[in-house]
Amino acid sequence: MLKVLEHYAFLHEIPELGFEEFKTSAYLGQQLKAAGFQVTENVNGTTGIVALLDSGVPGPTLALRADMDALGHIIDGEACARHTCGHDAHSSVVLTAAQELKAENAVKRGRLKLIFQPAEELGTGALAMVAGGAVEDVDMLLGFHLRPAEECAVGTAIPAMYYSACVTFEATIGGQTAHAARPHLGINALDAAVSAVQAVNAVHMAPGKSWSAKATRFLCDAGVTNSVPDTARVVFDLRAAENEDMTQLQSRVERAITQSAAAYGATAKIAVLKAMPAAEIDAEMTALVAEAIKEVLGEAALMPVRSTPGSEDFFHYPVQRPAIKAGFWGLGTGLTPGLHHPDMRFDLDALPVGVKIFKACVIKILG
């Protein structure tokens, strides 16, 4: 089990942004080949890796997925990559579980597949792996995520994490420039954009639904202070617990933006920057993970199923390939002060627990 800490120590020191995980991918590929897996690198022209262990005996194909990318931060005025979402831990846990399963000859039937995925933070890594055929033959798929301390304590785990849908888009508001002394000759894009933000704040969904819509970036500069600006760009972040609700929410928000801009005589062009679906989790997989958690940690360590307003591109897999039975669980790690915080840290002693839970799941299906 100390191997997981060695992997983590190495990966933590080489953080790389989405689709740029060259060192990370090379390390994982080398380790998997040395362990005896059939390894396919550069899936769909990306840094993604698929590794396969075929027992030679008929049975299902179970895949374990780990993300590899780090986050971009600006720290002390300098842009840098840093692992502040635990993807280095995810890769270390799945890699170690795979190595131990192979060494112990634990896969007795079917096939074990490993998917090391790039660019989760960009929201497009899973789609790239799907397009590259990574899950075409997969019957069941498992993923996991480190959990913050307030959600899940060290020594406990959550059998299913229901993530929300997330859509991020940029609205470009187009007006017409004019001298500030003669504003009637122009169309003030800044005014129109402010109105659009207020219109989005006035959008309502049913009170019983879980959703949010808010502006998260506003850029507008005519270059001088005595000119009416003709362009403004506003980024909006939308969240919804259900995919159907997101469809409705996105439609209402886009309508609010375009109509409020039109009231000023301005135009609005909307471009989706990132879209991730809400969780699609199979009940059988949740039950499987629950049994594995109890087996490894005891019944008292099994936490209730939990929902989160966060998003995860893992769920592109079951949405794009509905036949796949997907499960996604949460590991208690004492993580503070929070995911994506530049000083994020957690209890490394939790990582061997993650290895054991994944191994227990695999053995229940393929052992």
Results as ranks from 00 to 15, higher is better:
A97S: 13
V253C: 05
S25V: 12
A131S: 15
I293Q: 00
K274A: 04
E150T: 14
G29L: 12
F236T: 13
T247Y: 08
A79I: 12
D313S: 03
G110N: 03
P148D: 14
E6I: 05
A256N: 06
S212N: 05
D67K: 10
A215N: 10
Y264F: 04
A283I: 10
D54K: 06
A192G: 08
R306H: 13
L297C: 05
V194R: 07
F328L: 12
A263T: 07
S25N: 14
G59V: 08
H145S: 10
V167Q: 12
T84Y: 09
A199L: 15
D347N: 12
V39H: 06
I75P: 06
F10G: 02
R65E: 07
T231I: 15
D282N: 02
P322F: 03
S25W: 14
H340T: 05
A181N: 01
Y162A: 05
A323N: 10
L142Q: 01
G123N: 05
V4W: 10
Y27A: 11
P318I: 01
A213M: 00
G330E: 06
W211K: 06
A215H: 11
H341C: 02
T40W: 09
A63Q: 08
V224I: 09
T216F: 04
A323F: 09
K214R: 06
E151W: 10
F218Y: 14
G36K: 12
D343N: 15
A206M: 10
I281K: 03
A283S: 13
D343T: 15
T96D: 02
E242L: 02
E151S: 08
A323Y: 10
G36Y: 12
A119S: 15
A292P: 02
P322C: 01
E78P: 09
A215G: 11
T333S: 08
R345Q: 13
L112M: 01
I324P: 07
L28D: 07
G298L: 04
E104G: 02
G338V: 11
D313H: 03
H341Y: 05
G208H: 11
F37H: 09
N42A: 14
R65N: 09
P207E: 06
A300W: 03
C166W: 02
H179L: 01
I14M: 11
A360H: 04
A189T: 05
N243I: 05
A51I: 01
G86I: 06
G338H: 13
E104S: 01
K3G: 05
K113W: 07
A263W: 00
A157Y: 00
K33Q: 03
I115L: 15
I49Y: 04
A213Q: 03
T231R: 15
A326I: 00
L114F: 12
D221R: 00
R321E: 09
A106R: 04
G29K: 12
V194N: 09
S251D: 14
H179M: 01
V319Q: 01
